[in-house]
Computed example of a mutant assay.
Amino acid sequence: MTLFESGPGEVRVMTALRPPVDPPSAAVSLFPVVYQRPLAHIKHVGSFGQLYHGRLARDRGFDDALLTTADAEISETSIANIGFIDSGGEIVWPSAPSLYGITWQLLDEALTVAGINFRKQPVALNDVAGFAGAFVANSVGVVPVHRLGGLTSYDETASREIITLYEASAWDTIQS
């Protein structure tokens, strides 16, 4: 559901209905681009730039774009949050401006219950080779990252525990 102003003081609600989408069956590849969403911490309809960069990444043979600041600090992908797994198995969320998505929030809860440490910190493109793995998280689930540009390739097994934790999260019951 998206709220937007169609005229001065006129708030509209836009809802898109579609069948549930399964997460990709294979690990994804990301192409780094310099782009920051305006008001990244807010979900909004101003998504032309991120969709444009996502399409360009797919045209280059990648699954999605990895959005970075002009200083090469990672924020998110065009459609998902990204998390990294350090050599000790802890989760590192990039601290550059991004949306604190629902799947990220659910993962933080599951990680806390499982006793797995997580933190936010700056993650630059030149840092990615030092991580054991990476994953993306959005409304379709949690998926391992296989390749990040020409910078590194990850073994997707590092992400399996995170995916299992997410998949074990309780669903909210919706009464009709």
Rank of each mutant, 00 (worst) to 15 (best):
D64S: 03
L51K: 10
A80T: 02
P19S: 15
E76D: 13
S25P: 08
T15A: 15
R58I: 08
P8V: 04
E5T: 14
S6L: 07
E90N: 13
G89P: 06
A70M: 12
E76P: 00
K43H: 05
F4Q: 06
S29K: 04
I42V: 15
F62H: 07
Y100L: 15
V21R: 13
G54D: 09
S25C: 11
G7M: 02
D59P: 05
I102C: 02
I42Q: 09
P38T: 08
P97W: 03
P20W: 06
A57I: 02
P94A: 07
S29M: 07
R55G: 11
F31Y: 14
V11Q: 15
S6T: 10
S78W: 07
R58K: 10
G89A: 10
P20D: 02
D64Y: 05
V92I: 15
N81R: 00
R37P: 01
L99E: 00
G83N: 00
A26C: 11
E76Y: 01
E90K: 13
A96H: 03
P24V: 02
V45I: 11
D64K: 03
Y52S: 11
G89V: 07
L17P: 01
F31N: 04
K43T: 04
T69I: 05
D59F: 05
R58A: 11
V21D: 07
G88Q: 13
H44S: 12
P32W: 02
L67E: 03
Y35E: 03
K43Y: 03
D59E: 15
